[in-house]
Measured scan of single mutants.
Amino acid sequence: MGFKLLSKLLVYLTASIMAIASPLAFSVDSSGEYPTVSEIPVGEVRLYQIADGVWSHIATQSFDGAVYPSNGLIVRDGDELLLIDTAWGAKNTAALLAEIEKQIGLPVTRAVSTHFHDDRVGGVDVLRAAGVATYASPSTRRLAEVEGNEIPTHSLEGLSSSGDAVRFGPVELFYPGAAHSTDNLIVYVPSASVLYGGCAIYELSRTSAGNVADADLAEWPTSIERIQQHYPEAQFVIPGHGLPGGLDLLKHTTNVVKAHTNRSVVE
C-alpha cells in the first residue's frame, strides 16, 4: 500500500471513529477524501466538511520552486461564519470567499490569524475590503508590521502568557507558548472536538522541520505538551499544512522538532 493511500485511509478511519463516538456532533463529509496538494491548482481553494458547521479550507501556493498546501478553518456561528487564517495570499483568499459563498452561503463576518507569517495573514486586506472584521493577538499584529505583512485590524486580548485561553464565538483560542513562531495560536472547536494546530503542528508525513527561522526550538516541545494537557479530548487535529489526523500529530511534531534540534547540535 502506497504512503499517500495509507495517509488518506488514516484520515478516513479517524473521521469514521469520530462519527461513531459522537453521532450528534459529527456529520463528516462523505463526498470524498481530504484534498491534497496535487489536486488543488494554485489560485483555487477546496472546502472539506469535518463536522456539522465545521470545515477546513485548503489552498496551495508556490514557494521556492515548489507547491505547498495550506489549511485553515471555518466555523459556523449562528447565521454567520468565523474564518481562521487566510488562504495564503490575496488571490487565494478572494477564491476562498467565493467558494464559501458557493458552498455554504453564509457571510464571513470575523477572521482570526493564528500567527504573523504570510500563509496566515496574506489576504487580510481582501477580507477587510469584503467587510470582514480581522483579528490577531497584539504580538501577531506587531510582528506582521515588522515583517511588512498585512496586519489584522483588531487585537485579541488575554493571550499574552503561555497557557492563556479565551473564548471567541464558537471557538476557544489558546496560546501554548512559542513553537513554530513566538505568537502562534491554537484554535479548538469544543462542539466538535476539532483542534486546529496551525503551523505549530505537523502532518504525519512530514519528517523535516522546514521553516524554523522564527521558531523557538527549545520551547516548542513544552508548548505541545500544554496543548495535549489542555485538549486531551480532541479527536480531529488539523495541521497548518497537509493531512489531518488525531492527537498523534502532536507527538510526531515533537519528535521531528527534537530530531532537528539534535542534528543542529551535532553539526
Results as ranks from 00 to 15, higher is better:
T254M: 12
L243R: 14
S160K: 13
I74V: 09
I40S: 07
A66D: 15
I74N: 05
S137D: 00
P221W: 05
E80P: 01
A133M: 15
Y48R: 09
V189S: 03
M18D: 12
G43R: 07
S113N: 06
R128G: 11
T222N: 13
G131D: 08
S139M: 14
P35W: 09
V45D: 05
I238F: 05
P35E: 07
S139I: 13
T114I: 02
R206H: 10
L195I: 08
G148W: 04
H180P: 03
R46H: 08
V45W: 02
P23S: 11
V121E: 00
A136T: 06
N262M: 12
N255L: 10
S193L: 14
E157M: 12
T153W: 09
P152V: 02
S155A: 14
Y196Q: 00
G65L: 07
A59N: 11
I227L: 07
P170F: 04
K91W: 10
V11F: 10
E233D: 13
A51T: 12
V121F: 04
L250I: 07
L24D: 15
D183R: 01
Y231H: 06
S161I: 13
G105K: 13
L247K: 14
F63L: 13
L106Q: 11
D118N: 08
A94C: 05
T222G: 12
R120D: 02
D118L: 06
D64W: 09
R110K: 12
S161L: 12
F26G: 14
Y175H: 08
T140D: 03
S162Q: 12
I151F: 08
L106N: 07
A130S: 12
I17T: 12
P190R: 09
S264W: 09
L217K: 03
R141Q: 13
F174R: 01
S208T: 14
V112Q: 03
A90N: 09
T86F: 00
V37H: 15
I100R: 01
G169H: 07
Y48C: 07
H180K: 02
L243N: 15
M1G: 07
A130V: 10
N92M: 03
N149K: 15
D164C: 03
D64Q: 09
H252M: 01
T86Q: 01
T253N: 02
E101Y: 11
F3D: 07
D119L: 01
A259Y: 09
Y202M: 15
T109D: 06
E267T: 06
L13K: 14
H180R: 05
A259S: 13
R167Q: 13
Q103A: 12
V237S: 01
I238A: 00
C199G: 02
Y175T: 01
T254E: 13
I201T: 07
A94P: 04
S205Q: 08
R206V: 12
T182N: 12
H260T: 12
V256A: 05
N262I: 11
V28G: 10
S139N: 11
S205M: 09
A87K: 00
T153M: 11
D29F: 09
P23K: 11
K102T: 11
L204A: 13
Y34S: 08
S62C: 07
A213E: 13
D119S: 01
D79W: 09
T140G: 03
S162V: 11
Y196T: 01
H115N: 06
D77N: 07
Q228V: 13
L97D: 00
S113W: 04
H57M: 01
V256D: 05
F236L: 09
T261F: 09
G210F: 03
Y202D: 08
Y135L: 00
P170Y: 03
Y135V: 00
A200I: 09
Y231G: 00
L250R: 01
N262Q: 11
R142T: 13
D119F: 01
N211T: 09
G89Y: 05
S160Y: 10
T207M: 12
A234P: 08
S30K: 15
R263L: 14
I50P: 04
I224F: 05
L159A: 01
R142C: 06
E203W: 01
I151D: 05
F174G: 01
L9Q: 15
T36W: 14
V146L: 14
T254G: 10
E267L: 09
A234V: 08
V121G: 02
L81A: 05
Y175W: 05
V11R: 10
E219M: 09
H57T: 05
A129F: 08
I20P: 07
A179V: 07
L204N: 10
F116T: 00
S7G: 08
G122Q: 10
S139A: 14
P170K: 06
L81W: 02
A21V: 14
L96W: 00
L243W: 08
L81E: 01
A218K: 14
G78F: 08
L82Y: 06
V108D: 02
A200N: 02
A87L: 03
K102N: 12
F116G: 04
T36E: 15
P190W: 06
S208Y: 10
L106D: 08
L73M: 15
L106E: 05
P239T: 01
S31G: 11
L83D: 02
Y135W: 09
P152H: 04
E233W: 09
V212C: 05
Q229W: 10
P232I: 07
T207N: 14
G242D: 06
Y231K: 01
G32A: 12
Q103Y: 13
H252K: 02
M1R: 05
R128D: 11
E99F: 08
F116L: 05
K4T: 11
G198A: 06
V146I: 14
T253W: 01
V112I: 10
M18K: 12
G2M: 07
K251R: 13
R206L: 15
E101A: 14
H117G: 00
P232K: 13
P170R: 05
L9W: 14
Q229S: 14
S38V: 08
V257R: 01
P239E: 00
S56C: 15
G78L: 08
E101Q: 14
A98C: 09
S160W: 10
I104Y: 02
I20F: 08
R128M: 12
E147L: 11
L82E: 03
A25F: 12
I227Q: 03
A200R: 01
I17W: 13
G122M: 11
V112Y: 03
S30R: 13
A165C: 07
L83P: 00
L249P: 00
I100N: 04
L9Y: 14
S161V: 14
G89H: 00
P232T: 09
V11S: 10
